[in-house]
Amino acid sequence: MPVDLVLIVAAALTAGYLLGRLRPWQALGNWAADQIRSSGAWVRGGRGHQACVVLAHAVTAPRTSWRILRTPAAGGREAATAPVRDPHWAANRTRTTHTDQGDTA
């Protein structure tokens, strides 16, 4: 067996082992999903950054990307309004009575 072939096979096995250990495909998918979930950096990153994130997500998670594209936007083009927070939620909550008395006599 020629020495060149042995070196090529050894390099291929080593590269396969390292790719299996590092899992770059999974890391790229996790990064893209995290970027899409947050509304921070990827929105402000510009069109080039957004295109890279969407492309990475479409390549690493095609079913999820297709499902997201098929789902209609909630409420059309209007911006989502922030929920109204009640600062006195503890005082305004309703009290529930439990019918289960447990082991009391």
Rank of each mutant, 00 (worst) to 15 (best):
D103A: 14
W42Q: 10
R44H: 10
H57D: 05
A105R: 14
I8P: 05
A51T: 11
H57T: 00
A73L: 15
A82R: 14
A56R: 04
V59N: 05
A56I: 06
L28H: 04
T60P: 05
T94N: 10
R47H: 03
R77V: 02
L28E: 10
Q101K: 07
A11C: 01
A27Y: 02
A12Y: 09
L7C: 07
C52V: 15
I68R: 12
A15I: 11
R63L: 15
L13D: 09
N92W: 05
W31G: 01
W31Y: 11
R23G: 10
R67C: 02
T104R: 14
L19V: 02
P83C: 06
D86Y: 03
A61S: 14
R77M: 02
Q101F: 13
A11D: 01
R37S: 07
L18H: 06
A73T: 14
A91F: 01
P62M: 05
G75A: 06
V43F: 13
A73P: 02
H49M: 13
A91R: 13
H57P: 00
L69Y: 09
P62H: 06
T104C: 12
A79S: 12
A105E: 15
A61V: 06
P24I: 03
M1Y: 08
V59Q: 08
T14Q: 09
T14Y: 12
L5G: 02
A73D: 02
L13E: 08
Q50C: 01
A80N: 01
T99A: 14
G16S: 09
I36W: 07
P83Y: 03
V53A: 03
L7S: 08
L18K: 11
G48T: 02
A74E: 08
Q35A: 15
M1Q: 06
G102K: 04
A105T: 07
P2E: 03
A12K: 11
A73Q: 02
P72D: 09
A32G: 07
Y17Q: 08
W66F: 11
T96H: 09
T64M: 10
G75F: 07
V84M: 04
V3H: 06
A79T: 11
P72K: 06
N30A: 13
P83S: 10
Q26R: 15
P62Y: 01
V3N: 07
H88W: 12
T96E: 12
R21H: 05
V59R: 10
L7D: 10
P24Q: 06
L18D: 03
G46M: 03
A90G: 07
R70G: 01
A58E: 06
R47W: 08
G29Q: 08
L7A: 14
A58H: 05
R77H: 03
L18I: 14
G102C: 14
V54H: 05
I8D: 05
L28V: 10
G45E: 00
G45S: 04
G20L: 10
G75L: 12
C52G: 02
A91C: 00
R77Y: 07
P62A: 09
G75K: 06
A12C: 13
R47M: 04
G16Q: 01
D103M: 08
P72W: 00
R85D: 04
T99R: 14
V59L: 15
P24V: 03
R63E: 09
Q50D: 07
E78A: 13
R47E: 14
Q35C: 08
G102L: 06
